[in-house]
Design a protein around this nucleic acid. Structure first.
Lengths: 148, 148
DNA sequence: TATTGTTATACTCTATAACTATA
DNA sequence: TATAGTTATAGAGTATAACAATA
């Protein structure tokens, strides 16, 4: 059983995470805000999928995902392929251009994180990632392992 | 030295933290959104202070803090006291009404967290909090120890 | 001149609800 | 009827820049 004082501390930290996210967002170009990057990253990682599934992965409403995807489609980074099994939905797929921008954005992000986390060793970071994942699970916001 | 694949994982997790924060925000009344709660919590925790210092604690721009504080002042939760040492600024202080709402909101938040984190033990949560704090420090978003 | 705050403006992210098309 | 997705609308949070008052 955890303690109330720990809850307060955790709540405060989660709020401060916003500053971290904004720091990371600063390396992104205006054409690709965080929501867009999240979409590209998820499709690359988990493979082609429908909007509904992508929404679950991102833990946001389908309407939100739909807008982000539209943003990507308009820039030629994602294509919507007709789903032969269900004409109501279409499968989202990364285009070569999409993979290109993603690679570029990853370089920038990795570079930023390598700087900010320069005095972290692999084990500590693993521990943090493990605990974070458990936290997300506790809130039902966890993301399934690799393929899914 | 940490690894790039860990960076990607961490970046993804930080994005998912949004869902956790939204889950917590849902227990708050419309009159007290997250930004407002953060203001009340910080002043209660760190004591009376100026807008500038509060902005640092919250890791957001002073213009943002100013609006949140105004929101609180309009509801009688915070009072702005003239700073005798500098007429440009005023000291922010929690009113009795402010302490009351804060106590109520804490009850709700603690109740939510006790439920979500019901299968966490104190040690694991301490480890997470410790690592999170280190992460925030690495991004220059850490919050100083108690008083400050 | 520099600093503390405030306000106006704009942008991103999000959810809810209404709507279309298909199951 | 129920479900997949889109779009319109609204609300929260944030930053930048221009401005006022004081140091």
């Amino acid at each position: 059983m955890a303690e109330p004082s720990q809850y307060a501390e955790l709540a405060r930290q989660l709020g401060a995470v916003g500053a971290v996210k904004r720091d990371m967002a600063r390396v992104l170009p205006a054409s690709c805000p965080t929501g867009t990057l999240a979409v590209l990253t998820s499709i690359d990682r988990y493979g082609d999928m429908r909007i509904g599934r992508l929404s679950e992965l991102l833990a946001v409403d389908m309407s939100v995902t739909s807008r982000h995807v539209t943003h990507c489609v308009e820039r030629g980074w994602i294509e919507r392929i007709c789903d032969p099994t269900d004409k109501r939905s279409r499968i989202l797929r990364l285009t070569p251009a999409g993979r290109e921008v993603l690679a570029e954005l990853r370089l920038r992000m990795t570079s930023l994180l390598a700087d900010r986390l320069r005095d972290w060793d692999e084990d500590d970071l693993s521990r943090l990632i493990g605990l974070m994942n458990r936290l997300l699970e506790s809130f039902g916001a966890a993301v399934p392992a690799r393929p899914g």
